[in-house]
Simulated assay, not measured.
Amino acid sequence: MSSSSAVQEAPVEQSSRPVGEIVDRLRDAASGDKVSLRDLVESFGESSFLPALMVPALLVVSPLSGIPLFSTFCGLLIAFIAGQMLISRRYLWLPDFLMSRSFDGAKARKAMDKLRKLSDWLDKHAKRRLRVMTSGPMRKVLQLICVLCGLAMPFLELVPFSSSILGVTVLCFATAMLVRDGLFATVGCVTLAAAVLVPLMVAGVI
């Protein structure tokens, strides 16, 4: 069975702590002994694409990224979600082979608890500014970069920190689009450059 949810961005964007609410929902969804990516993504119900995009970005930044192949699954989720945003699809669809991936609920809850400081920081500092970086054609550019970041994660599974840095990039871009904060889009570009440099340094190219 595939997953689909309607696109309704306004309820999430009106929140005073949009990122914190996403972490709270993820924490609540991970209440059992086992939790699947389906549980986490579908915890938003008829939400928007942006919270769904932030789910795998937050997860790959969390300690869960140390689980073998976890970054690969999160990267593919990011690519699927951002790709559908890019083509302006009305409903979100995700394949079962990604959604059925499950892991320990206790570890997930612990990871969410560790993300609270990050989410609080994002909510505190994100605000509407430099909106030219998050509107019109630039919004599509950010979505395209998120697709490329997601597709790159499976290939960087063995390169330390690289997938997490790409996760930070996607998280910055998603926050920028959610709050319409162009400064976070700029920060995302900086972390993207860092993500490119890390594998090159590991490979001894630079």
Rank of each mutant, 00 (worst) to 15 (best):
115 L>P: 03
15 S>F: 03
22 I>Y: 02
140 K>E: 11
31 S>P: 02
69 L>F: 13
66 G>M: 00
71 S>T: 13
55 V>L: 11
28 D>Q: 15
98 L>K: 08
62 S>Y: 10
3 S>E: 08
66 G>F: 00
23 V>R: 02
96 D>M: 08
47 S>Q: 04
36 S>F: 14
9 E>D: 10
84 Q>K: 06
107 K>C: 06
97 F>L: 12
33 D>Q: 12
34 K>E: 10
192 L>M: 13
103 F>C: 05
17 R>C: 04
123 D>G: 03
75 G>F: 04
199 P>E: 09
201 M>Y: 11
136 G>T: 10
143 Q>I: 00
114 K>R: 15
37 L>A: 05
71 S>I: 01
6 A>K: 10
150 G>H: 06
81 I>Q: 05
199 P>L: 08
203 A>G: 07
192 L>Y: 13
103 F>A: 04
126 A>D: 07
96 D>Y: 01
173 F>R: 10
130 L>T: 04
195 A>W: 05
69 L>T: 15
144 L>P: 09
168 V>L: 14
49 F>S: 03
89 R>S: 12
7 V>Y: 02
62 S>F: 11
72 T>Y: 12
25 R>L: 05
85 M>I: 12
34 K>V: 10
101 R>D: 04
102 S>E: 15
18 P>I: 00
22 I>E: 02
136 G>C: 09
57 A>G: 04
110 K>L: 06
143 Q>D: 04
61 V>G: 03
137 P>C: 07
104 D>C: 06
19 V>C: 10
139 R>I: 01
19 V>Q: 05
8 Q>H: 06
132 V>I: 07
148 L>H: 06
94 L>F: 05
15 S>N: 08
152 A>P: 08
10 A>Q: 14
151 L>N: 06
136 G>D: 09
171 L>D: 07
174 A>P: 04
105 G>L: 04
193 A>V: 13
82 A>H: 08
185 A>I: 01
139 R>M: 12
205 V>I: 15
19 V>L: 11
64 L>H: 06
89 R>W: 01
61 V>W: 02
120 D>M: 08
63 P>S: 05
103 F>R: 05
2 S>N: 07
21 E>G: 11
49 F>R: 03
107 K>G: 12
116 R>A: 14
143 Q>F: 02
56 P>F: 03
62 S>N: 09
164 S>Y: 01
65 S>R: 15
76 L>S: 11
143 Q>R: 09
116 R>C: 14
192 L>Q: 09
199 P>V: 12
